[in-house]
Design a protein around this nucleic acid. Structure first.
Length: 280
DNA sequence: ACGAAGACCTGGATGC
DNA sequence: TGCATCCAGGTCTTCG
């Protein structure tokens, strides 16, 4: 599932392939892919035709592509979205949703998304930071992320630590996988109340979040010099390094106890029953 | 204002 | 074999 490291890998690859190129057409193959673009597919194509892409930026799991018009293309991969560079001759993918062609006739940019949780839209005047994603907090790799403010906001909330880590308005980029990994490293159970955490404890969690994201970026940042922005929207090579996520019943890499799985928000949480005891 | 739950999706895995 | 059900989970919307 694309979380910050996967999206950052896509951003780097995309920047290399589309920066400075001018869009010739923006074909929408599935309306749901641009459901956030309220004016619809005809407008989507019209407003993008002839525009030059200046850069590829990211906040949390969102990407945006500033254009020479001052507008920006917003992209979210959802659960299964991919942004692929493909030669014009390549056959359409089964789940091709949007295709961009360029005036230079070079490789196309294709948005492919099986489950259509992801999508694209155009933000008017959003080149600096689209208003549509201004509610998304800075991510912990952002130099302007404010550790003290985060700690204060977190400890001021009456919620559980894992819920807080997944709250993109508090800290962005973290999803279910990296939340579980950071909590395993911090030896904290996900249901620990945030208002009972000390400031140093929050600092430790944040440090582990940063470590796990940085390691995953390194693991995912391989081999995208082909006509490919990112392999498959999954964790790259990082799945080999997981300590908790998806390891139900397997021995904890720290203490050997079998990793437990618990139901959480219609999904799963993985943790070590010995290293991460449930709060009472 | 905040927190929690429901809705949105498809295809692979599993159960009968 | 075929059909039904479960499961993956990020984000927006709705409700309390």
């Amino acid at each position: 599932m694309p979380e910050l490291p996967e999206v950052e890998t896509v951003r780097i690859g995309l920047a290399k392939w589309v920066t400075g190129r001018t869009i010739a057409t923006a074909e929408v193959h599935h309306p749901r892919a641009i459901r956030r673009h309220l004016p619809g597919d005809v407008h989507f194509n019209a407003v993008l035709t002839g525009r030059t892409i200046l850069d590829v930026s990211r906040r949390g799991k969102y990407l945006w592509l500033p254009l020479d018009s001052g507008d920006a293309i917003i992209a979210h991969l959802g659960m299964s979205g991919q942004l692929l560079m493909q030669p014009a001759t390549a056959e359409d993918e089964k789940h091709l949703r949007v295709r961009f062609t360029f005036t230079d006739g070079g490789p196309q940019l294709r948005f492919v998304d099986q489950r259509t949780f992801g999508g694209l839209s155009v933000s008017e005047g959003g080149a600096e930071l689209p208003g549509e994603i201004s509610h998304i907090a800075r991510d912990p790799m952002d130099p302007l992320f404010d550790d003290d403010a985060f700690s204060a906001r977190l400890r001021g909330r009456h919620t559980e630590i894992k819920r807080a880590l997944l709250d993109q308005s508090l800290i962005s980029g973290v999803g279910n996988i990296y939340a579980d990994e950071a909590l395993w490293r911090a030896k904290l159970h996900g249901t620990r109340p945030t208002d009972k955490l000390t400031r140093p404890a929050v600092g430790r969690v944040l440090g582990h979040v940063r470590d796990v994201l940085a390691e995953a970026i390194r693991a995912g940042g391989t081999s995208f010099d082909e006509l490919y922005v990112n392999v498959n929207g999954e964790s790259g090579y990082f799945d080999r390094s997981l300590n908790a996520y998806g390891r139900e019943g397997e021995p904890c890499h720290r203490c050997g106890a079998p990793i437990r799985r618990e139901s959480f928000m219609n999904r799963s949480s993985f943790s070590c029953p010995r290293c991460q005891p449930r709060p009472r």
